[in-house]
């Protein structure tokens, strides 16, 4: 396959960036999208040019590191996959492909396609945990019986890999799907109920401080989420938040 790439190039966080055109040939349809970029970077390196910086780590869809807004969609046109799981067979020979970083005020560009998603970490640190005694007498989590229904919902929420596709896809750059997944994962379990009120209040406060937009229920996040996190989680967080703010 021969492709025309339009890639966002930005030297660093301070300088302005722009879209730059590249042509790439002999792309195998069996390559992953990241492997295609590896090939491009090898060519750029050989020519002595600056390679395109992009995020990646596990390359098997579980670390949440790879990002990219490809042809107008987070993680590209495929559904339920991250960019490392996106194959070049989803594109046609001769296609023009736009490759941009995830865009949000709370995700500033570090270089080219690499964005700083540490705002997610700070939201997690504000309450996305449970406090347990780990001094040698930790109670086995399975010692407490939990309804299968709740355990399943909690586990579904816990599959969020924090990639930020929800923020990137949302017209408001809202982080509600991410935060609601992290809130739900604990809110559904007895271990998480102890700190449920503080958790949701603190995480939402942090989310707002980080400069994410407000949710307007367009549902783009749910469609683009590589892990299929449901909007149900946002509704649950809205409920949790309402009860927590009335009671505290």
């Amino acid at each position: 396959m021969n492709l025309k790439l339009k890639i966002w190039r930005q030297k660093n966080a301070r300088e302005a960036g722009k879209m730059v055109d590249y042509n790439i040939s002999n792309v195998s349809p069996d390559m992953s999208f990241l492997e295609m970029l590896d090939v491009l970077n090898e060519e750029l390196n050989n020519k002595g040019e600056d390679p395109v910086a992009f995020d990646h780590d596990c390359r098997e869809g579980i670390c949440g590191m790879c990002s990219l807004f490809i042809n107008g969609e987070a993680h590209g046109p495929d559904r339920g996959v991250t960019t490392c799981q996106l194959h070049m067979r989803k594109f046609k020979d001769g296609d023009t492909i736009y490759i941009e970083p995830f865009r949000a005020k709370a995700f500033p560009v570090i270089k080219d396609l690499v964005v700083d998603r540490s705002s997610f970490d700070r939201i997690q640190q504000a309450g996305g945990f449970i406090s347990v005694n780990t001094s040698g007498n930790t109670i086995d989590a399975n010692a407490i019986p939990i309804k299968k229904h709740d355990a399943d919902r909690s586990f579904d929420a816990a599959t969020c890999i924090g990639c930020g596709a929800c923020v990137a896809s949302c017209k408001n750059a809202s982080a509600m799907l991410f935060v609601s997944a992290k809130v739900s994962q604990f809110a559904l379990l007895p271990q998480g109920k102890v700190e449920a009120h503080e958790r949701v209040l603190n995480m939402v406060k942090k989310m707002d401080e980080e400069g994410f937009g407000n949710c307007t229920n367009t549902g783009a996040c749910e469609v683009e989420c590589p892990k299929g996190i449901s909007l149900e989680n946002i509704a649950r967080m809205n409920r949790e938040y309402l009860f927590a703010s009335v009671k505290s």
Binding site: K6, Y98, E100, R103, A104, N172, A173, T216, T218, V223
Partner: peptide, 21 residues
């Protein structure tokens, strides 16, 4: 207004019609 501010740099190519009404 706040939502507008939450994404200062817009996408060069965006296809919101693929995921929202």
């Amino acid at each position: 207004y706040q939502n507008q501010k939450a994404r200062p740099v817009k996408y060069a190519k965006n296809r919101p019609e693929t995921n929202t009404v």
